[in-house]
């Protein structure tokens, strides 16, 4: 899974849908980054078409991990549906949803 470092954030770019059958590498990447002390994480959804319930759960788990370690999570998307989904689920009260860093 592609990940790049900016001045503040590590940007993770999943390259497939975030659905139950595909979640393990995504979950593992995030877990490894937190263990390495990379706790300012951005997840770029540019190549993601579908997020299922368990995919949403990983965002909440990631938010808990990074915030407990003093970091923060930003989700990057230009997709109006995704932005609306995070808003209706009130997840944008936990972490930032933005179009870019």
């Amino acid at each position: 899974m592609a990940a790049t470092q900016t001045a503040e954030f590590v940007v993770v770019r999943p390259e497939q849908d975030l659905v139950a059958s595909n979640l393990e590498p995504f979950h593992q990447t995030l877990q490894d980054l937190v263990k390495q002390g990379k706790v300012h994480l951005a997840i770029d959804l540019a190549k993601v078409g579908i997020i299922d319930s368990k995919g949403l759960a990983v965002f909440l788990m990631c938010h808990k991990s990074v915030s407990a370690a003093g970091g923060r999570l930003v989700v990057l998307t230009t997709d109006a549906d995704f932005k609306h989904l995070f808003h209706v689920m009130r997840m944008d009260q936990h972490f930032t949803v933005a179009e870019s860093l």
């Binding site: 995030l30 319930s53 759960a57 990631c62 991990s65 209706v88 689920m89 009130r90 997840m91």
Partner: peptide, 23 residues
Amino acid sequence: SRLCCEDGGDLDHNMPGAMRFAV
């Protein structure tokens, strides 16, 4: 609306057993 994850932990935990969504 509200979303509440039952048994929801961080990345070192298992997936939540339930995700209760009320609207």
